[in-house]
Simulated assay, not measured.
Amino acid sequence: MNGLAWLRQGDAVTQAAAALLLAMSVASWITIFWKAWLMRRAHVDVPRSTAAVWQAPTLAAACEQLRQWDREDLVRPMVDAVIAASAQPPATLGGQGSRAQQLTRVLRNALQASLARLKFGQVLLATVGSTAPFVGLLGTVWGIYHALTGIAGAGQITIERVAGPVGEALIMTAAGLAVAIPAVLAYNVYGRILGNVEADLEGFAHDLRELLADEAATALTAPPGE
């Protein structure tokens, strides 16, 4: 309670630093829980989805299977993009060029969209992890300055009068570390998982392009029965 009383008695800078740390903590924990759910599903679904594609007779049939396995829509957009590329009118810029060039373009765009979804929130975690300690340190330095100024204005200075306010001001440093550490740990853990999933997606896109780059392979994009 004494720390809270010190915070209530602080000026606008101290209270703003505390409010910023609170906002950073709430935002980072929401991101941590959401990305834990997303990364878990992606880590399981991507290998299972790519395996389902290679076991399907055509890409159209693969799309139907991916509705069940690809819950986060990380693999299916690439398959859909390849199918859509085969239907591009030759008169448009998208329909011009070799088959390999068209596949490279559409797969790159679909891959970037999937990776952007996976990477969402990483910047926030990195920002919180790198700046929260400094925000806490700013609150501590400012709090100590005002504490010492108030004690000096009271006249007599003793260690007992200094220790309390200074100790309370140091709470801001501890708060900054408490906000930063979970964000840094989550960023590192999710970054490793994301790297593995990204490698799987890039490998799948490369293999799919190599398979369909030959004009003779366009029959794979036809719906079953045609």
Score class of each variant (00 low, 15 high):
M1W: 02
M1P: 07
N2H: 10
A5W: 00
A5I: 12
W6M: 13
R8N: 14
D11K: 04
D11C: 02
T14R: 00
T14E: 02
A16K: 04
A17W: 03
A18V: 10
A19N: 08
A19L: 15
L20C: 15
M24Q: 12
V26A: 14
A27T: 11
W29C: 01
W34I: 10
M39R: 03
R41Q: 15
A42W: 05
S49R: 06
T50G: 12
T50I: 15
A51R: 15
A52E: 13
A56E: 09
A60P: 04
E64N: 10
L66M: 06
R67H: 12
R67T: 12
R67Y: 06
Q68I: 09
Q68P: 00
D70T: 04
D70P: 06
R71N: 06
R71T: 14
L74Y: 03
V75M: 09
P77H: 05
P77N: 06
V82L: 01
I83R: 13
S86C: 01
S86Q: 12
A87S: 12
Q88E: 14
L93E: 11
S98A: 11
R99C: 08
R99N: 15
R99S: 09
L103W: 05
R105M: 12
V106F: 08
R108A: 13
S114N: 13
L115N: 06
A116E: 10
K119M: 09
K119G: 13
A126M: 06
V128M: 02
G129D: 13
T131Q: 07
A132R: 05
A132F: 10
G136I: 05
L137A: 11
T140S: 11
W142E: 04
L148C: 03
L148V: 15
A152F: 00
G153D: 05
A154H: 06
G155F: 02
Q156G: 03
I157E: 02
I157G: 03
E160Y: 01
V162Y: 00
G164P: 00
G164E: 00
G164F: 01
P165D: 04
P165W: 02
G167K: 04
V179F: 10
I181G: 05
Y190N: 08
R192A: 13
R192G: 08
L194T: 11
V197Q: 03
E198R: 15
D200K: 11
F204M: 08
F204W: 02
A205P: 08
H206Q: 12
R209P: 02
R209W: 03
L212E: 11
L212V: 14
A213T: 12
E215I: 11
A217F: 04
G225Q: 13
E226T: 15
